[in-house]
Design a protein around this nucleic acid. Structure first.
Lengths: 169, 169
DNA sequence: GGAAACTGCTTTCATTTTAAAAGCAGTTGC
DNA sequence: GCAACTGCTTTTAAAATGAAAGCAGTTTCC
């Protein structure tokens, strides 16, 4: 952990931890894309390069934002997990997505999840956070996880519809 | 405006606009510190340098996050104003502050505002946003602005108390 | 049992960004 | 008339980023 901060302001400290162009995208892919391995994270929409990904993962682990463990199914695989700190970013992700959707030129398929998160509100966010605690921290969960699958299904529906439209056009 | 984005994901687009170590601090100082001029913004807690500040202000204006106008009281002064886009970041600021306060080594005096914002919740944020619309966009406001002054007073109270403690110690 | 594909990275090198410091052409207040 | 203030720009060094290739294993598949 680094401990020489520019100031003790909570917004500044937050930016010092994940205020760059990539960290939050990695966390996004872990939360919404269920990605847990290096090579999965390497296939981001935005095309992160491997050296940057390696650097950020290392930093995020050092900061307590992620944990890293051996994957029992493969001697070379590492599994990255969210921590409570990172799961607590879900509402911020939802707000960021809603903001981007309102003010920036988002694509329909990549913003359907943000739309559903905004519509679902804090109740949905809390359910999703509980599901992430179940998947990443092993905490008990009431019923099976469903939020991410619902978001994913909506995404795929849009993709299918747009593919159809293109085929027709 | 740049228009070559890495992806149409709303979170990514948001990061492309203000996902760096300084942009959000400039906006923070305009929102919570009522700073409107270059040299005011230069005196940030974190010590931004003048070339970076100039660069970011230019970019934020290009992105529609701020507007720049002549200050009628001084031929060399420029006044920067928030836009609706930036005022809409208030809830994100509140969440970021709350998150930082919970998980990072914040200082007491610099986090009292975040504490009050968290306690006030969406009702307070909306009132604050209306006050910012009044100050920066000239929209009508019901009653005089009070939120920022309240936050500022709490900040100064903590500073005064801590100065007293130091003097006694 | 051998080849191909996959594992999480690291290395290299060119380009871009950041940072600190000094400076500058005006403008304003006293 | 001069000192302090205005929003920057310039210079130079250091650091971060990005693209591409490579690497020492491990696993899969036939």
């Amino acid at each position: 952990m680094k401990d020489d901060y520019r100031s003790g302001c909570p917004i500044n400290l937050s930016l010092e931890v994940f205020g760059d162009k990539w960290s939050l995208l990695i966390i996004r892919d872990m939360i919404f894309g269920a990605k847990r391995h290096f090579r999965e994270l390497l296939r981001s929409q935005e095309g992160i390069s491997s050296n940057i990904l390696a650097d950020r993962l290392k930093m995020l682990v050092e900061q307590g934002m992620l944990t890293k463990a051996d994957d029992p199914t493969h001697k070379q695989k590492a599994i990255y997990s969210l921590t409570e700190m990172t799961i607590a970013l879900v509402p911020i992700m939802a707000h960021l997505g809603a903001w981007g959707r309102r003010y920036l030129p988002v694509s329909e398929e990549l913003s359907i999840r943000a739309e559903l998160m905004e519509a679902g509100g804090p109740d949905l966010w809390n359910r999703f956070m509980d599901e992430l605690r179940y998947e990443h921290l092993g905490l008990p969960l009431d019923g099976p996880p469903r939020v991410r699958a619902t978001l994913q299904a909506a995404f795929e529906e849009v993709v299918a519809r747009k593919t159809g439209e293109t085929a027709v056009a």
